[in-house]
Write a protein that binds this DNA or RNA. Structure first.
Lengths: 167, 167
DNA sequence: GAACTTTGCTTGACGATTTAAGTGACCGGG
DNA sequence: CCCGGTCACTTAAATCGTCAAGCAAAGTTC
């Protein structure tokens, strides 16, 4: 007999795992975006871009490098930086060493805003991800995430995952 | 001394776990959307909506219930169903038992399209999620996902996670 | 050093999503 | 009944993201 699970092409245990993961993929970004939007008037991508600038010497970074760090397209980043510029949190400046490149720089106001926003976001991450997990589960989650990311993009070495890579 | 990690407000091991998870949250939906867009000309939300219809008796479901199953807003679903209607894969019909409600129904063409699309999507999920994980890691992932989802929305009982709940 | 290619970024048109307002259908008390 | 309130859904406007040109600086070839 064909079970419901087979109707999806996944076995029973795979299916329930997959549905749970889909829930996380949809709800966790939404929850974090909502927290940032409510408390700081920015979305998660804008926050990640500012955080990545903050974590670089001179609080600046080339657009193209910043796009990689934030997992976004260059065109998306360009428009986001324009938005952040309008709010006075970031400014653009030409790269003195290569006229083609543009550097995004965190302003003083942007730094203040980021430092103001950080604790709330950190608290949300702790509350939604780490608090409900046992220590060992957090370690398992890291290993699992690494494996999935490598399956999606085998070219990424372990150490080059995200904003932390430059630190 | 203040480490880079503390600058983010997360401890070193939390930070690397978080960055890896962010990578999955961004890249996995993008990879699945890309596969569905390329092979079937639809996005993941449209696919989930059709799959949820398929997995119900009569291949039909009220809009509001379908919205919950697909983790989406009612307005989003309404527009997605309109798109699917234009392609002839779904049709709307009034609920005979309550004039306020609308039932979305999978058409024969929609059923055929879904059955045509299923194997490719299943293969992608297997390749990107289950193949790189050991069996025990897949079980860990399910438990971890459940815990995170409950932290986000404590009102959801374990058995009510996603499309599978009705089967 | 002129012509071509490549690189880095920006822009505009388009599609998708959210938000808020609007439209009927039901429901419950007078 | 019928009138306010709620419910299910739709629609319009604004926002956000992607894709495809476009442009200017840097590099490459002859």
């Amino acid at each position: 007999m064909e079970t419901e699970q087979e109707a999806c092409g996944l076995h029973e245990d795979e299916l329930s795992t997959w549905l749970a993961l889909v829930g996380v993929l949809i709800k966790l970004p939404a929850a974090l975006d909502e927290q940032l939007q409510r408390d700081a008037g920015m979305n998660h991508f804008e926050y990640l871009a500012m955080l990545a600038l903050y974590r670089n010497e001179g609080h600046r970074k080339r657009m193209s490098e910043l796009a990689v760090l934030t997992n976004g397209s260059l065109s998306r980043l360009s428009q986001v930086i324009s938005r952040l510029e309008k709010r006075g949190w970031v400014r653009r400046t030409p790269d003195p060493t290569d006229g083609r490149c543009t550097l995004a720089v965190l302003t003083d106001a942007g730094l203040a805003k980021l430092l103001d926003t950080l604790p709330g976001n950190t608290e949300a991450i702790r509350r939604l991800v780490f608090a409900p997990l046992k220590k060992v589960q957090a370690r398992q989650l890291r290993e699992i995430s690494h494996r999935i990311i490598r399956a999606i993009d085998p070219s990424i070495p372990d150490r080059k995952l995200g904003i932390g890579s430059d630190c």
